[in-house]
Structure formats: C-alpha cells, structure tokens
Simulated scan of single mutants.
Amino acid sequence: MATAEARLVRHNVFCAKDGRALANKVAPHGAFTNPQIASVGPTEQGARRRGIEYLVSTRDYAETAYGWALEDTTSFVKILTDPLDLTILGTHTIGPQAETPIQPLIQAMTPGLTVDQAARDVLHIHPALTEVVEQALPALLRP
C-alpha cells in the first residue's frame, strides 16, 4: 500500500494537472512469520459481526500437487464471497508463500470479478501453489 501511495504522490507532485486518486478498493496485508499469513477483506468473524452474509470455501494446500511436494498438512486458503452477486469479499491464506495464492484473488477483487469469472476464465499453472485457489473457487460457483 505504501508503495502504491508513494507512486501516486510522486505522480501528483510532478503532474499536478493530471491528478489521480488511489483507485484500489482492497488493501491486502501479510505477515512473514512462520507460518506466513496473507489476508484481504473481512474474516468470517468480522463479516458475522458486521452482519455481512457470505459463502465460504476453504481448500488445504495438501489437496494440490504443490502442497504434496511441500509435505504440508496444515496450510489453507479461505475465500468469502457475496451470496447474491458472487463477488469476492475477502480471502485469507495461512502457510508457506501465503502471498502467492492470495495474489490472483486480489487481482480478481480489484475489478470486481465474480467467482464465476475467476474460476472459469483464468488458467492456472500446474503444479503451482496457486492451484489451491483454482480448486477452492468451484465450491462457490452458481449451479
């Protein structure tokens, strides 16, 4: 976020006639601890407290080829979506390289893609850690 804000300030200082605002509506964050944690948007607890309805899908790293290679049995990706329009409300990852699987979800959230669009219209590399996202999204698709 600080890098994006610095680019914006630099632009606005040097190009005052073409001033810009930060258009990004999502602010991801990460903790490079062990295990790593990456998150954007509300958690389930936060959504419940605020009365936000949601659908949820969780997928373990171990359910992907990359997760098997890591011999990981505790890491996961969780995705929360709006039950009406199926846009992604938030996503949370705990595990090695947590920032990697969350990135395509951030990129889907920024323009407001639906789960349908993110699940059906994006190809994922195999084997790669982002497959955990590819596998979590179908549980949220419209029938």
Results as ranks from 00 to 15, higher is better:
Thr3Leu: 15
Thr3Phe: 13
Ala4Glu: 10
Ala4His: 03
Ala4Phe: 05
Leu8Met: 14
Val9Gly: 00
Val9Asn: 08
Arg10Cys: 05
Asn12Thr: 07
Asn12Met: 07
Val13Phe: 12
Val13Ser: 07
Phe14Thr: 10
Arg20Cys: 00
Ala21Cys: 03
Ala23Gln: 10
Ala27Pro: 02
His29Asn: 10
His29Met: 11
His29Phe: 11
Gly30Trp: 00
Ala31Asn: 04
Asn34Leu: 06
Gln36Arg: 00
Ser39Val: 08
Thr43Val: 04
Gln45Ile: 11
Gln45Ser: 14
Arg48Val: 13
Arg49Asn: 12
Arg49Glu: 14
Glu53Thr: 13
Leu55His: 07
Leu55Ser: 10
Thr58Lys: 15
Glu63His: 11
Glu63Gln: 15
Tyr66Trp: 14
Trp68Phe: 07
Trp68Val: 15
Ala69Ile: 05
Glu71Lys: 11
Asp82Leu: 09
Pro83Glu: 07
Leu84Asn: 05
Asp85Thr: 01
Leu86His: 15
Thr91Glu: 04
His92Ser: 03
Thr93Asn: 08
Thr93Pro: 01
Gln97Leu: 14
Gln97His: 12
Ala98Phe: 05
Glu99Trp: 06
Thr100Phe: 01
Gln103Phe: 12
Ile106Leu: 14
Pro111Met: 06
Leu113Val: 00
Leu113Asn: 02
Thr114Trp: 08
Asp116Glu: 15
Gln117Cys: 05
Gln117Val: 13
Ala118His: 07
Ala118Asp: 03
Ala119Ser: 15
Asp121Ala: 13
Asp121His: 13
Asp121Gly: 15
Asp121Val: 02
Val122Glu: 00
Leu123Met: 12
His124Trp: 12
His124Ser: 12
Ala128Pro: 02
Ala128Arg: 14
Glu131Asn: 09
Val132Asn: 03
Val132Pro: 03
Glu134Lys: 14
Leu137Gln: 03
Leu137Pro: 02
Leu137Glu: 01
Leu137Phe: 06
Pro138Val: 10
Ala139Arg: 13
Leu140Tyr: 08
Leu141Asn: 01
Arg142Asn: 06
Pro143Cys: 01
